[in-house]
């Protein structure tokens, strides 16, 4: 069963059509990919799915529920989390705080209970901290938990972005170029890491990636965008041998 599905989503900005008629399906517990040259509309597709932009036309379904036009925070609450291509951490805050913030959406309390420290709030806060520490342990960031996030090395920042997304307790994870700026060895580690979290957190993953090695390695299905248009879809093998893709994408690399 498809956990995430889009039907003919189109996104226009003034005169530009960034994404046109994009239809995709993500099966539960699968990892699929989205590729295409720069400016193809990949990030825009993510932005539409996560509610940052309301699509000009088309629909998005999550577990058969139509989520088109829902606000981003509610989409996250439903179980779709994302990372950003251009890393958007809470820079001045610590690594631990970054993860704690992503727990906030599951808190069942109110500011005044928090201020007077009601037992209910204190219990939940304690649980949040434990959970966040465990997660940081999982992604190997526990040693830097008190550092301000902007001071981390680049690779750590990418991992923290993923950890933060995981903390929202998603069912679907959207990764926007997680391997950007990594060398082949780091990308390989990342590949293993992605598969590991998929299994551990019971996730379905939709990722944008430029590193062919990563995409071909982990994705079972790939969509190819060029100028907003879906020019191909299929297994890594099919994509690799598709002449249109080679022309549009692999050719320019």
């Amino acid at each position: 069963m498809a956990i995430l599905k889009t039907e003919n989503i189109t996104m226009k900005f003034g005169g530009i059509t960034a994404v046109s008629d994009f239809t995709m399906e993500l099966e539960k517990n699968k990892i699929i990919g989205l590729i295409g040259p720069n400016g193809a509309g990949k990030t825009t597709a993510f932005n539409v799915i996560t509610g940052v932009y309301k699509p000009t036309s088309g629909h998005i379904f999550y577990n058969k529920e139509n989520i088109t036009g829902i606000k981003p925070h509610n989409i996250t609450k439903l179980g779709i989390a994302r990372t950003f291509q251009n890393i958007r951490l809470f820079k001045e805050l610590s690594v631990l705080e970054n993860v704690l913030i992503a727990n906030h959406l599951r808190l069942k309390s109110n500011p005044f209970s928090a201020v007077v420290n009601t037992p209910n709030y204190v219990r939940q806060e304690k649980h949040m901290i434990e959970k966040s520490l465990a997660l940081l342990e999982e992604v190997d960031l526990i040693d830097v938990k008190d550092e301000k996030s902007f001071s981390l090395p680049y690779g750590y920042q990418r991992r923290l972005e993923i950890a933060r997304a995981l903390a929202t307790e998603p069912k679907v994870l959207l990764l926007d170029e997680p391997a950007a700026g990594m060398n082949p060895q780091e990308s390989n580690q990342l590949m293993e890491f992605i598969i590991k979290i998929r299994d551990k957190f019971d996730l379905s993953i939709f990722m944008i990636e430029h590193h062919m090695q990563v995409v071909m390695g982990v994705c079972e299905k790939i969509y190819v965008l060029d100028h907003g248009i879906t020019i191909a879809q299929g297994t890594p093998h099919e994509i690799q041998n598709n002449p249109r893709v080679i022309e549009a994408y692999l050719g320019v690399e």
């Binding site: 925070h73 996250t76 958007r88 809470f90 001045e92 913030i101 727990n103 500011p111 007077v116 420290n117």
Partner: peptide, 28 residues
């Protein structure tokens, strides 16, 4: 007390990056 609570952290997240905060499920 407010600033050090989860609600205070949510406010600070909004200050740092509204789009990321919203993506983390915070109702701006």
């Amino acid at each position: 007390l407010l600033i050090n609570s989860s609600y205070g952290r949510a406010l600070k997240a909004i200050r740092e990056d509204e789009i990321a905060a919203e993506a983390m499920g915070i109702n701006l």
